[in-house]
Design a protein around this nucleic acid. Structure first.
Lengths: 196, 196
DNA sequence: CCTTTCGCGTACCGTCGGTACGCGAAATAC
DNA sequence: GTATTTCGCGTACCGACGGTACGCGAAAGG
C-alpha cells in the first residue's frame, strides 16, 4: 500500500484548497472564478470536479478548514485553564482574536452563510467552535455558576455578538485593531460577567 | 408638471423592487437571474439597467426598503413608551420580531453582507435601525441608567446577538416560532437587564 | 411644430459554472 | 509478467448569466 495514487490525490486537494482559500479570503467567493483557482493550483477544472462537488463544494472544504483552525485555537486557549469560568472567558477571547483576521472573517462570517445557506453554515459551526460554547455554558450551569436556563438561545446570542464584533474589528485598520479589540473585549467580558 | 413620465418611471421601479424582493427572499440573491426578475416585473433588462446599477444596485434598493421597514417598526415600538429603558427593550423586541420573518432575514442578514460587502451593509444598518440602538444606549448613559462606557462596541455586540437570534428563529418551523421567540427574548431581556 | 430628452425594448457579447469524454498511468487479477 | 480494471485528471464544449450598445417612440421644453 505505497499509495502513490492517494498521495497525488491528496496533493491536488491541498493545492486547490490552499489557493482557493487565499483567493476567497482576499476577493470574496463571488469575484473569484474557477479558472483562476485551478490555474493558481496548477491543475484544471477536471481535477477540481473530480475532487469536489463544484465551486460550492470547494468552498465548503475551505470553510471547514478555517472553522477547524478557529475551533482549535478556542480549545487550546480553554485548556490552559482549570476553572470553567476562566475557560469560557479564554475560549471567547480566543474566538474573537482568531475571527478578527480579515481572511477568516470574510470566509467564515460573510460568504459562509450566503454560499452554503444559513442552516448548513450553522451546522458546520455547531460541529466546531459553536459546540464548545454550548458545552462551556452547560458546564457552568451544572456547576451552579450560571442559573439553570436554556443554553442554546444564550449560545446563539453570545455567538452572534462575537461574530459581529469580529466582523467590525476585521474592518478596522490593522494598526488600530489591537486597541479596538481590547475595547470590544472589555465590553464582552463585562457582558459575560453580568451573567453570573 | 403633471409628470406622466416620472410616474411611469416610479411604476417601473416599484415593480422591479417588489418582484425582486419576493424572489430574493424565497430563493436567495445568487439563484435568481435578471431574466426572471424582469419577466416577473413585466419589463426588460433595458429598463432595469436604466433604473439601477446592475443586479447589485437592484439588490441595494431592495435591502434599503427592507431596512427602512424594520427601522420603522423599531421606532414605532419605542415611541409607545416614555421611559428610555422601556424604549430600548421595546425597540430590541420589535427588531427581533421583524427580523425573524424569513424573507427579511434572508435579504438583510444572509445575502446583504455577502452581496454588498460587510462595510456597505454596516453603513446601511447604521443609517437605519442600528442608529436607533446607538442613540438609545447613549440616552441611557446620559441618564445614568448605564455606567459611562463606549457605546459603539456594545451596540455591535447587541446588534450581532439580535441578528444571529433572528436568523435562528427564521430557520425554525413557523408553528413553533412564537414560543421559540419568547424563549430567546427572555434570554435577551435578561442579558440587557444585567447591564443596568 | 420642432427639437431635445428620456424611459425602455432588442440584439448581442464575454465569461462563468458545469459536463462529457478520452487518455495514460497506477492498481488489481490471474 | 501480462491482461484488465480503476482512477486521477486534462480537453473541449455547452447553456446560462450579467452586462452593454443602440435604436425607437413618446413626453417635455422652446
Amino acid at each position: 500500500m505505497a499509495g502513490v495514487r492517494e498521495e497525488q490525490r491528496a496533493r491536488t486537494r491541498r493545492a486547490l484548497v490552499e489557493r482557493a482559500r487565499a483567493l476567497f479570503a482576499t476577493r470574496g467567493y463571488a469575484d473569484v472564478g474557477l479558472a483562476e483557482i485551478v490555474a493558481a493550483a496548477g491543475v484544471t477544472k477536471g481535477a477540481l470536479y473530480h475532487q469536489f462537488e463544484g465551486k460550492t463544494g470547494l468552498f465548503r472544504a475551505v470553510l471547514a478548514e478555517v472553522a477547524d483552525e478557529v475551533a482549535g485555537a478556542v480549545v487550546a486557549a480553554a485548556e490552559a485553564h482549570d476553572d470553567p469560568w476562566a475557560q469560557l472567558l479564554a475560549g471567547c477571547r480566543a474566538f474573537l482574536v482568531a475571527s478578527t483576521d480579515p481572511a477568516v472573517a470574510r470566509i467564515a462570517l460573510v460568504d459562509g452563510p450566503a454560499v452554503l445557506g444559513w442552516a448548513q453554515w450553522r451546522a458546520l459551526d455547531e460541529a466546531t467552535s459553536g459546540r464548545h460554547l454550548v458545552e462551556a455554558l452547560e458546564t457552568l450551569v451544572a456547576h451552579g455558576v450560571l442559573s439553570p436556563r436554556p443554553v442554546a438561545p444564550l449560545a446563539h446570542l453570545l455567538g452572534g455578538a462575537m461574530n459581529e464584533a469580529a466582523l467590525w474589528l476585521a474592518g478596522t485598520a490593522e494598526a488600530e485593531r489591537p486597541a479596538a479589540l481590547e475595547t470590544v473585549w472589555g465590553e464582552l467580558a463585562a457582558l459575560l460577567d453580568a451573567l453570573r
